[in-house]
Amino acid sequence: MTDETLARWWQEGSDAAFAELVGRFYGRIFNFLWHATGHREDAEDLTQETFLAAHRSIPRYQPARTFGPWLFGIARHTLADHWRRQRPCDELPPDFADPISTSENAPAAREERGSALWQQARRLKPRQFEALWLRYGEGFDIAGVARALGITRIHAKVLLFRARKELARRAGSGKGRTKGDRL
């Protein structure tokens, strides 16, 4: 049974189809939001908010389109609302502290926060982080990333390119900025 078929049944009022889709996607949405926020409880609440928003929006879903990117698009909007409420000064929560400079660098704590590279990725602009997670965390193709972000494919490629470049620069590899680089 495809996600899109279940979504169509959900549109037609099937409670079982909704429950099945929650079962299939709540872990993926939770991981996206957990990596984005760095807070487990926030991620749980935002996962729930995402599905409630999807429940309200399901009449507008077009079954011809892939369901995953549509749902991640809603998760992204939920996350944006969360940032507006939580981060008015664009200040990072404690979990976002640089793992290199923090004393909490034990393996368990690292596991809780994710890899150092992804912690750096979190500190990029939200849109850049989202593009990276959808592409490499979720494994979406460029079309899926574009749909989830509501942008064109070429825009998605540019966004990913810039995100990787900025990440490389921040990671201190020194390879992020080269002579003649104007992009």
Partner: peptide, 29 residues
């Protein structure tokens, strides 16, 4: 640089188990 970073990002994206009660909580809500 882009090729290596893409490979590393894909390899290190950790997925942790969501809390088991969450799905039921969402459906009930």
């Amino acid at each position: 640089m882009h090729r290596n970073l893409a490979t590393r990002l894909a390899a290190t994206a950790s997925h942790r188990e969501p809390p088991p009660f969450l799905a039921a909580r969402i459906v009930a809500a």
